[in-house]
């Protein structure tokens, strides 16, 4: 659904200009004019105080919510005007949430297969792909378990496997380690970074945690619905630790 011809112009994946989002009929302004560009293969961390609009921005990028004003494109195509936003959500991006958002009545393997119903995989191909993805996140021994039987870190691994179901090129993660203890958080971050590195996925990650943000190639800091700084993090994280 996305014309690849347009991607060549500087590999810009996302471009926002004057992006605004209001809630409750204008009473709450979550985004007050955001301008940004995200390029192919970048790891962008979005930081800022609670309520500054990080999740709202990520939801706009993921076409989960419509902006109120401004323009927002994905590889040159306007996200709010996409003819088939479901296909974009299913195939182009993977979304990872802070509280995992697995479906409680489905097993680990089934949860990973849910997005594959949008696509033309056969039943056995879906199953096979789910097993393969769960293996890659180290959970192939829990296929038949339900989310309630897993630890937080394990649940997030399942959610990551699910986000990769249809082989997206972009990963949008909203505080993926926010609900995890530090050990699990560390492991989940390593997993996400590995995907970014090994699969060359563009990664946009919202976080409170500066040590995580510092591992990004770029840090966008927000406040009150605006971007207040946007700079390359040229210092390797390890140097700061």
């Amino acid at each position: 659904m996305v014309e690849t011809a347009k991607t060549s112009s500087g590999d810009i994946v996302y471009e926002a200009a004057g992006l605004k989002k209001e809630f409750d009929g204008g009473k709450v302004a979550a985004l007050r004019g955001v301008d940004l560009q995200i390029r192919q293969g970048e790891f962008v961390a979005i930081i800022g105080p609670s309520g500054c609009g990080k999740s709202t921005l990520l939801a706009s990028l993921g076409s989960l919510d419509r902006p109120s004003a401004g323009t927002l494109t994905y590889r040159g195509n306007s996200i709010p005007d996409m003819p088939d936003p479901a296909a974009y959500r299913a195939h182009e991006i993977g979304f990872i949430f802070q509280s995992f958002h697995l479906l409680p009545t489905f097993t680990v393997a089934e949860n990973v297969q849910i997005p594959m119903f949008e696509g033309n995989k056969s039943r056995s191909q879906r199953k096979e792909r789910a097993v393969q993805l769960l293996k890659s996140v180290g959970l192939d021994h829990r296929l038949g378990h339900f989310p309630s039987e897993l630890s937080g870190g394990e649940r997030q691994r399942v959610a990551i496997a699910r986000s990769l179901a249809n082989g997206p090129s972009v990963l949008l993660a909203d505080e993926p380690t926010g609900n995890l203890d530090s050990d699990s958080a560390q492991q989940i971050m390593e997993l996400i970074l590995q995907l970014h590195r090994d699969l060359g996925m563009t990664l946009v990650l919202v976080t409170h945690d500066l040590t995580i943000a510092e591992r990004a190639s770029r840090i966008i800091a927000m406040r009150d619905g605006r971007v207040i700084s946007d700079q390359a993090a040229d210092t390797p994280t390890t140097a700061l630790q």
Partner: peptide, 8 residues
């Protein structure tokens, strides 16, 4: 969630 992971 179903809509967010791409269900039409």
């Amino acid at each position: 969630i179903l809509l967010a992971v791409g269900w039409r």
